[in-house]
Amino acid sequence: MKPRVTIISLTSCSGCISTLISLDIFPQFLERTRIIFFQFILDAKNIEDTDIAIVEGCVSEETQITLLRDVRKHAKKVYALGTCASCGGILSLSSSKVADPISNYIETNGIIPGCPPPSKLFGNSLIRLVENKDIILSQKNMCGNCSLKRDMKINSHINIYKIIPNPEEITLDEENSECFLKNGILCLGPITRDGCEYKCIKMGLPCEGCMGPVSKDFTSNLINYLSLINLSQELKEYAGIFYRYSKPKFRR
């Protein structure tokens, strides 16, 4: 018996969906499951009993809460797909809009984080779901396996004065590039979950934290992290960084 799968989109950019579809294993996923609700590719209207529900996007409207609860009622397991569903996502930057992770309203069985979720993690997770196993995520932050850290395994020279580096300030030489923190550029690697395959860092850009935190919440982690540092003016003025991908619930 193929597992029944429901895929729901809330407020989002659909990037997770487009990543899902372009995954190598997507045809296999179609073969091995019975998709009963997926608005992007199917006509189905109603939420029905399902084994796996995957929810993408953040909760920003009242109607979505009703929908979510309905999904939870019909689904054996519910997973949050992408940073929007698991942390709140880019809409957290907005001060007027609500951007809640789905776990604020319903119990979830796991998350597939990332903006978009890294394809390796995404693919493996989907296969595990189809095989009725739980998703395995790294419990570590990025620094441990980061190629830029090299020998200075513990970073005691954190010294930040820039949030967004001017492109010319970035070392392009892959061989000689150094840890961003050492060079005074804010990298969110320390407070971000490992698993994205270091895509930004390989391209010479610091981590933006799209994978979300491992524990605690993004904002707390960032404040704890920045409290260690003598902040420069640029950082003090730029409040937007604190809710790049999630914001504390009580701000409303």
């Binding site: 990037g15 487009s18 372009s22």
Partner: peptide, 10 residues
């Protein structure tokens, strides 16, 4: 750099 939300566009 990745499938969506490309990194190299700055």
């Amino acid at each position: 750099g990745r499938s969506v939300h490309l990194i190299s566009l700055i």
